[in-house]
Design a protein around this nucleic acid. Structure first.
Lengths: 187, 187
DNA sequence: ATCGGTTGGAACGGTAGCGTTCCGCTGAGA
DNA sequence: TCTCAGCGGAACGCTACCGTTCCAACCGAT
């Protein structure tokens, strides 16, 4: 199999996904916009969900920073900025919101994004652990709720509402979220 | 136009929406599952987006409570419980996540849900105003950020992650969110 | 009893995607 | 230089949906 053909198909797949949504995604069109014959695509993947799962599982897991910044709020700000960096790309944003809706209908996709969810959870877990060591939050803090508190507001704002989030907003959000975590009781 | 036919079409429209997603929604199937001829549907609405907009704009706006509960945290808990009450219905959950993804592609749908967004914002604004009167939060609090902080974590947990949220969780979330709002600096 | 609008149902031509098959060409490795 | 897997392109039969049109049946109001 020629690697350049595979790459072109991969690129077109995500581009079309962002453009039409998963449900409206047509493999015929993916092949066409990739400048590739349908046979070349079907030789690699049997159907849409297999292609999506395979491609998603090969997407970069490059957000494994350690990021010790000295305080809970500084760590939070770093995590929020990292989230914003990802959500800034319009294609990522569209695919992500579409994916969250589609997963209810196509459970196979949920498996494919497990690695991402795990990466995010570990990242936040590390942040919490450092905060506990610094005695900034209770050792009994509810980690699930903490994860929701940290990631959800920014995701909601950027991806769902399509709103802005400048650096000052991120900074204030980090401070406020820090206050929430410091007040967080055990589960 | 017979009202029972319109009702059957409406019911089928939302049922199919929850089942297949907006993109996969076929008016032909809506008419079929409603036990109605296609002509009866097309006599009422010219196309899918018109039908969706019209039906959405007629959906209940029945969540206009005043809900003074004596404290910021009690008010928060009431709002969170109201949100949970809505997100509990699987069909609502599916349609909502699907809608959030679809809006990027079909701006007309955004117009249709404006009333809901406004209702939610006013509800939260009232909550904030009461908290300011009680001197629980700063009068200069960033209301947009407050709205994100209140609604997003629960939406994220229930609708996106598909997680549980028992009454104890809601209560703790209300306490923690309260701490965040009390610490919230002006914009 | 009559009348006029609405109904379910069937059919229309057209578009689009699916997944498969076949063909003649190309280009990289033996 | 030869060979052959992979290539694009085109076509296949099939299914689904679109939006329109027609019809005979129906039914409520006059």
């Amino acid at each position: 199999m020629r690697a350049d053909v595979t790459n072109a198909l991969t690129r077109s797949f995500f581009e079309e996904w962002a453009r039409t949504g998963y449900a409206g995604l047509s493999l015929e069109r993916v092949a066409r916009t990739a400048g590739v014959g349908k046979a070349a695509l079907y030789r690699r993947w049997p159907d849409k969900v297999s292609m999506a799962s395979d491609l998603l599982s090969h997407v970069g897991l490059t957000m494994t920073d350690v990021e010790e910044h000295g305080s809970l709020e500084a760590d939070l700000q770093a995590v929020l900025l990292a989230i914003r960096r990802v959500l800034r790309h319009p294609k990522v944003r569209r695919i992500l919101t579409d994916l969250h809706g589609e997963i209810e209908r196509t459970p196979a996709l949920e498996m494919a994004i497990r690695p991402f969810q795990r990466a995010r959870r570990e990242r936040i877990n590390g942040l919490i652990n450092r905060a506990i060591k610094r005695r900034e939050v209770s050792p009994l803090v509810d980690r699930e709720m903490a994860a929701d508190l940290i990631a959800a507001p920014l995701y909601w704002r950027i991806a769902v509402l399509g709103g802005r989030s400048d650096r000052a907003y991120i900074k204030r959000l980090a401070l406020v979220t820090g206050a929430a975590l410091r007040a967080s009781a055990p589960s």
